[in-house]
Nucleic acid binder design. Structure first.
Length: 514
RNA sequence: GGUCCGUUCGUCUAGUGGUUAGGACGCCGGGUUUUCAUCCCGGUAGCAGGGGUUCGACUCCCCUACGGACUGCCA
């Protein structure tokens, strides 16, 4: 099959039925990577043909999510383009025109069955033990449609405003071979397919019709979507044929699904909050239930880490490299290297990616990201001081939000002391030793209160008195930070300054008791 | 139930007939840091099972098992 399209054009076509979950983000990302790799266009099309499931705010949420991820849309509602409108609810007239073509060439037909009648038909088939439960070449003979009703009856019903749908006339016993870039050739017999509704009684098309018409009209060259669409691929191919567009048919690639971290099934909306990790890129508030779902952004992930992690779920670049920028990914992306099987999402690895990115992000940039929130907690902080602190603690942050527990003692005197550390490090003679350190530090002039100088002074004291380093350094750390860990001790001392250091030592001696 | 898709360490994966089956996360141990983290070194652990094809199968074919998707006037 030759690709008839001179220009690569792909689309991400979500339904605004709620927040985009990370599987959707990955689909968008792969579309974007593929487009950019081949100097093509990436379009965003909103598929809102189901007004019953429409959720307000979802469309904006989708756009904001892509933006946060650094996925730039070339054509869409906000960006414009020559193939609009990019929202299906605004394309009603177009679909009406195209469904008529199918009706005229007998590829589609009218059906008048009520939901109850359809339900009864399916129940009956199930009860009879039949393997097929579809509305198809067989069962349609017993239902109310263009095959069982006379042409006049059909016309009359429509004229009288009787609700109807338009169904696809699937041929009987025809071997259909479809090609998927990731999975190769797939063969299906048309008798297994059902006469899908293409046009609903509310005057709007279903996904299948709208999708094919729009992809054709928008000159989409490659359809890259989730694996859940694979079963309807034969139907879509048949639709292209019925329109006579087979030579303009896009190529298809069905992406493997994202699975739960443990247990069965694909990742779902609920998993995140139950298992303690986000499934949405951005925070989402459900306006109906007032529930809030956390997002990667709010949890302290860097977008670059987030998309890097996502990209490697189902795709591997050449070589052993795992840390890749968006540009790297574009350069390396290859649909043929996308896997066939579903990938289990790992929160642990997601954190690891984020940590790598935090470590490699310049202090200045991290400061920009964190400053607004830091200022809320500690008003009047000095920007340069914050930047310095970030430099000292960033390698022990997995999430941006870890900053507060890692660095609070740089901004405020410890309120309490970790009892485990107290027990282990605070001995009988510690208060006396601490007060000696107090005196030493007190004698250092303000201007010489640097990391190097204070360190030298304390070490000299230790050596002169033939003490162990741990005996001094550990309790000193405790009074300064309240805990047993953290950056280099003398970096902390010089950062908080002479006055505060002395105050903390004095406070520690006074408050810490065994 | 039916149709289709899939199956390499716990997880993400490399691997396309001949490899000591490689890497990463996690976990464990060691070193550096007299702290924690980072970093470095080492260890742990895998081709779902059964038949073929072949001189030779993780790689090709079939069956079974398991997993997944779909089976709506939802996408």
């Amino acid at each position: 099959m030759k690709n008839m399209h001179e220009k690569i054009r792909v689309r991400f076509a979500p339904s605004p039925t709620g927040p985009l979950h990370i599987g959707g983000v990955r689909t968008a990302l792969f579309n974007y990577l593929f487009a950019k790799k081949h100097n093509g266009d990436f379009l965003l099309r909103i598929e809102d043909t189901d007004q019953a499931r429409y959720v307000s705010g979802a469309q904006e949420y989708i756009m904001n999510s892509l933006k946060w991820c650094g996925i730039e849309v070339d054509e869409g509602i906000n960006e414009g383009g020559n193939f609009g409108p990019y929202k299906q609810s605004e394309r009603k007239e177009i679909y009406k025109k195209y469904i008529q073509i199918l009706l005229d060439n007998k590829s589609a037909y009218y059906a008048f069955d009520t939901p109850e009648e359809l339900d009864a038909m399916r129940k009956k088939l199930e009860k009879s033990g039949s393997s097929v439960r579809h509305y198809n070449f067989q069962t349609r003979k017993e239902m109310k449609n263009s095959f069982t009703l006379s042409e006049d009856e059909v016309k009359q019903k429509i004229k009288n405003g009787h609700p109807y749908v338009v169904r696809f006339n699937i041929p009987e016993n025809e071997e259909i071979t479809v090609k998927d870039i990731i999975r190769g050739e797939i063969k299906v017999n048309s008798s297994q397919l059902d006469d899908k509704v293409l046009f609903k009684s509310d005057g709007l098309p279903t996904y299948h019709l709208a999708n094919i018409v729009d992809d054709y009209l928008m000159q989409i060259s490659h359809v890259i979507r989730g694996e859940e669409w694979l079963p309807s691929l034969p139907l879509h191919v048949l639709l292209y044929r019925s329109f006579g567009w087979e030579n303009k048919m896009p190529e298809f690639a069905h992406l493997p699904l994202l699975l739960k971290p443990s247990g069965k099934g694909k990742l779902s909306k609920r998993d995140g909050d139950q298992l303690g990790f986000p499934v949405f890129p951005l925070e989402w508030k459900d306006s109906e239930t007032n529930e809030t779902f956390t997002g990667y952004r709010e949890s302290g992930y860097l977008p670059e880490a987030f998309i890097n992690m996502l990209a490697l779920l189902g795709w591997t670049p050449e070589g052993d490299r795992e840390i890749l920028s968006l540009e790297d990914m574009i350069a390396e992306f290859d649909l043929n290297k996308v896997h066939k099987s579903g990938a289990r999402f790992s929160p642990e690895k997601a954190k690891w990616f984020n940590q790598q990115y935090i470590i490699n992000t310049p202090d200045e940039k991290l400061t920009d990201l964190l400053l607004p929130e830091i200022e809320k907690r500690f008003p009047d902080v000095d920007v340069l001081y914050v930047e310095k602190v970030i430099g000292l603690v960033k390698e022990r942050m997995q999430l941006l939000t870890d900053f507060y527990q890692q660095a609070s003692f740089f901004f405020e005197t410890p309120k309490e002391y970790n009892q485990k550390v107290v027990k282990k490090r605070w001995k009988e003679d510690t208060p006396k030793l601490m007060s000696e350190i107090y005196d030493i530090l007190k004698n250092i002039p303000e201007i010489k209160f640097t990391t190097e100088y204070t360190e030298q002074a304390v070490k000299t004291f230790i050596e002169k008195n033939e003490l162990s380093f741990g005996k001094i350094l550990n309790p000193l750390r405790l009074v300064l930070t309240g805990t047993g860990g953290g950056p280099h001790l003398f970096d902390i001392i010089s950062a908080v300054g002479k006055e505060e250091t002395l105050f903390r030592i004095e406070k520690g001696i006074r408050e810490i008791k065994k």
